[in-house]
């Protein structure tokens, strides 16, 4: 009786052959899990959210009525809800601007002047706050900014409490203490999101070729002119990339406005309260759609400004 000439082929061997003959099969097998993840879990949850926002709530029992209606979106236009959206937008814009102004000199120095060990120190300094818990940082700020906190103590000790009181006396953004005012909230937001602005800015500034700066000088431009006409336009994509982070992170945050500030609602907080506390998931979903729309517009504008060209 003849025995096999070739050694018996294992399953792995046969699979290898199959994949060699049909390379597309392997590709499909490898791509399916991540695509399923993206499609079902990520886009699926977004679709569920969108669907919920077209439902409404029975106002007494708090049960969701699964019937298609635009009533929930109409509720967003009520003055108190409209206020929440406007308040969040203004805070996000202010925080983004504040971060950009603070981050530029730091990023510029880190990108162009810091060398060797100093560069490492800079990176470490920027990243360090990201390594501690977000909640710890916010609670620490609540204590720093409190009426009986270190800032009040320091201004009392240096006899400058008049300045602090003058700032707090400002209409709208002022308040009883830094920790219950918009100024305080702005400070905490700016602190927490600053690294997300510095890093992309620094990356953009590092890509500005030195030769262009030299050419600008050779052609007789002053330092201010060089900055305005060469450095800033070339670094702009980095600024815009950073602003996407700070803007969207501020818009979605719900913890800082709960701990610091005067209890006025922000979008994130409203979503948190409406879905968790009031059980009004449709209105929470409608609120959650707003930042998505705003970010889509923002990203479209950023794309036109060339923020993604370097990606």
């Amino acid at each position: 009786m003849m025995t096999a000439i070739f050694p018996a082929r294992s399953l792995a061997d046969r699979l290898t052959t199959l994949f060699w003959r049909k390379p597309k099969l392997l590709l499909a097998l490898m791509l399916t899990p991540p695509l399923l993840w993206l499609g079902v879990i990520y886009l699926g949850s977004l679709a569920a959210l969108l669907l919920q926002s077209f439902y409404s709530i029975d106002e007494f029992s708090g049960m969701v009525v699964p019937e298609f209606t635009l009533k929930t979106y109409a509720e967003l236009l009520r003055p108190q809800n409209y206020d929440i959206i406007l308040r969040t937008l203004l805070m996000s814009a202010a925080v983004t601007l504040g971060c950009a102004i603070l981050a530029f000199p730091i990023a510029y120095y880190a990108a162009r002047f810091a060398k060797g060990r100093w560069k490492a120190v800079f990176y470490l300094g920027i990243m360090l706050p990201l390594w501690s818990s977000y909640l710890v940082k916010v609670y620490a700020w609540k204590l720093i900014l409190a009426k009986e906190g270190i800032i009040t103590w320091a201004t009392d000790a240096t006899h400058t409490s008049g300045i602090l009181n003058a700032i707090l006396a400002l209409p709208v953004i002022g308040g009883n203490s830094l920790s219950t005012s918009y100024i305080g909230m702005f400070a905490v937001f700016t602190y927490v999101w600053l690294p997300y602005m510095i890093l992309p800015m620094q990356a953009a500034l590092e890509r500005v070729p030195t030769s262009m700066l030299e050419a600008s000088q050779d052609l007789g431009a002053t330092r201010a002119q060089t900055f305005r006409t060469v450095i800033l336009p070339l670094a702009m994509p980095g600024v815009i990339a950073g602003s996407i982070f700070t803007f969207s992170l501020t818009m979605g945050d719900y913890i800082i406005p709960q701990i610091v500030g005067n209890s006025a609602n922000f979008i994130g907080m409203a979503v948190y309260q409406l879905q968790g506390t009031a059980g009004n998931i449709p209105l929470a979903a409608a609120f959650a759609v707003i930042p998505i729309l705003i970010m889509l517009v923002y990203l479209a504008l950023a794309k036109r400004a060339g923020a993604f060209d370097a990606l």
Partner: peptide, 14 residues
């Protein structure tokens, strides 16, 4: 339900 939305308004300064 009006208590809920109006109280949000009051806290928001409306």
């Amino acid at each position: 339900y009006r208590w809920v939305s109006d109280y949000i308004g009051v806290i928001g300064g409306r």
